[in-house]
Structures are given as C-alpha cells and as structure tokens.
C-alpha cells in the first residue's frame, strides 16, 4: 500500500515545527508514525505536508518536575516500559507501555503521538486519564496545559488546535498501587476493552479503554469506591454510561461484560499489598 503524495519537511526544533505547521492547514505532525502511517497507507489520512519531528532531541526526556513526572512527548513506548524513573514514579504507565503492540511497535511509537492520534482503543490515553495527567502544548500563541479529562473530544479528535504541538506529559506525583488489564484476541492486537486503575491522592481513579469514542472515566465505579462499597460491587458498575463499539471482534454487550470483569481484576491489583503490579489477559 502506497500513501498519496505529500510534501515532507524535517523540523530541527519545536519552534521550527510549529512554524512549518502553520504554513499549511493540511499539514500533519509526524513523530514515530505508528498511528499515522497506517492511516496514510489506507488513504484514510491524506495530509498535504508531513512535518517530521522524529529527530527533535529536545522532546525525548524523562525528568522530575515540581509535583509531577515530566515526560517528553517523543518518549517511545519502549522507553516508558524500561525507564527507571517511569517505573518508580508512574508504574502504571510502564506497565501499560510494556503491553502495547509488539517490540517493533514499541521501538517506534511515542506517547505524544498516541495522544494526538486520539484513538479510544489506545491504552496510554486511558492510563493517563486514570493518573490525572496533563499535557503541555506549544503553539504560536505560547504554551498552555490541557488536562487529560478534557483533551479527547471524540473519535480521533482532540483539543489540539492546528499548529499546536504536545511537548510534555505531566503525571502527578503520589500515585500508589495500580492495576491494568486488557483483553485481546491476539497478543499484538488493540484491546477489545481495557481498564486502568490507580490509587491517587484524591482516591481511586478508573479509566476505560475502547468503551466509547474517547477514553472514559468509570465514574460510577469511582463513586461507589469512595462511598466505601466493596471493589466487586463497584466493578459491576464499570459499564454504566459507556458506549462501546460493536465490530467483528466483539459486540457492545461483550465489551460491557469485559469492562466489568477487567475492572474487578484491576481493582484487586490496586488493593493488593504490593506497591503496584499489573497484568493483562489474552
């Protein structure tokens, strides 16, 4: 499969990338390309210009910020899975990244690319929602911070305006134990449904993968837990207010069933005495 023709420019810095993007309203940013290139090969995405930021070193870092872990937008899934700071301070992210796609995909795919793509079947956006993360975004107008809870607007739609570039992902400090579960037919597949749960300073937060057009908070589960209900009872509410897709791999009803079961398992991991562990079911 061959993508439609497009112009190609390499940016050496974030500022240069923003300048290139703003000159062409059909321009798209290219990071690792593992969401965008498949869409371009299917000609579901036909950008006129790709601005390649893949080699912008200033976007590859993991560091400690004031009250949060700062992750450069070009940090690859492989780095998230293996970086000692991520593993220690955002164990849920490391656990999730370990289970994305396959090793080859993890060597190329980036956290910023996954967010900007905005696919509700992706694992990282839901995990970041559970972690109450926020995203630092640069544009010609300056910088702004977008909270994970308002970043995703619809299927493949985000709050990013044209010319805006995610530069940093901020994960608040103080997250405790966590659980991550997803169900796949084959090891490299996207999740039919998935659940990320984390004990945060404001209580246990639970977010769902592929249960609607955007990553969803399982608000009913969280409310039940904060009201002191047992985890099993709370997990039974995991599909409340969800709108899962129906496709060849699973019906909407099966996805609701999976959400309830996986939430129960993820919450059991959160409750476990161990500081944090995660798993997935295949």
């Amino acid at each position: 499969m061959i993508p439609a023709e497009f112009g190609y420019r390499r940016a050496a810095s974030v500022a240069e990338a923003i300048g290139m993007l703003t000159q062409d309203e059909d321009a798209r940013l290219l990071a690792g390309g593992h969401s965008l290139i498949p869409l371009m090969k299917l000609r579901l995405a036909v950008p006129s210009l790709l601005v390649d930021i893949g080699k912008v070193a200033e976007l590859r870092y993991v560091s400690e910020g004031p009250g949060y872990l700062a992750i450069g937008a070009l940090t690859r899934h492989h780095t998230l899975a293996t970086n000692p700071l991520v593993r220690e301070q955002a164990g849920l992210l490391a656990a999730v990244a370990t289970e994305i796609g396959d090793p080859q995909v993890r060597h190329r795919g980036t956290i910023g690319g996954s967010l900007a793509h905005g696919d509700p079947a992706s694992d990282l956006p839901a995990a970041l929602l559970a972690l109450d993360a926020s995203y630092l975004v640069s544009s010609p107008a300056g910088n702004r911070v977008i909270s994970a809870g308002v970043f995703h607007l619809g299927f493949l739609q985000t709050a990013l305006q044209h010319g805006e570039v995610i530069t940093e992902i901020r994960v608040p400090s103080g997250t405790g134990s966590y659980g991550f579960r997803k169900f796949r037919a084959r090891s490299m597949d996207w999740a039919m449904a998935g659940v990320a749960a984390a004990r945060t300073p404001s209580g246990i937060r639970v977010a769902l993968v592929n249960m609607g057009a955007v990553p969803l908070r399982a608000a009913a589960v969280e409310a039940a837990l904060s009201a002191g209900r047992p985890a099993a009872e709370a997990a039974a509410l995991a599909a409340v207010d969800t709108a899962p897709p129906a496709d060849t791999s699973a019906s909407a009803g099966f996805r609701r069933h999976l959400a309830r079961v996986l939430t129960g398992q993820a919450l059991a991991d959160v409750d476990a005495a161990a500081p944090g562990r995660a798993g997935s079911v295949e």
Partner: peptide, 22 residues
C-alpha cells in the same frame, strides 16, 4: 500492515517494521 514482522530490520540496532517507516 505492521502485523506480521516479515519486514523487520534493525534501525540503529533495534528491530522495527520497515513497512511502517518512511
């Protein structure tokens, strides 16, 4: 389609799928 791995090469020493890299 980034699935089968037959196109795997080493890019800077790491395995990648060359059907999904320009």
């Amino acid at each position: 389609t980034t699935s089968c791995g037959a196109c795997t090469v080493l890019l800077n020493g790491e395995a990648v799928k060359s059907c999904t890299v320009f």
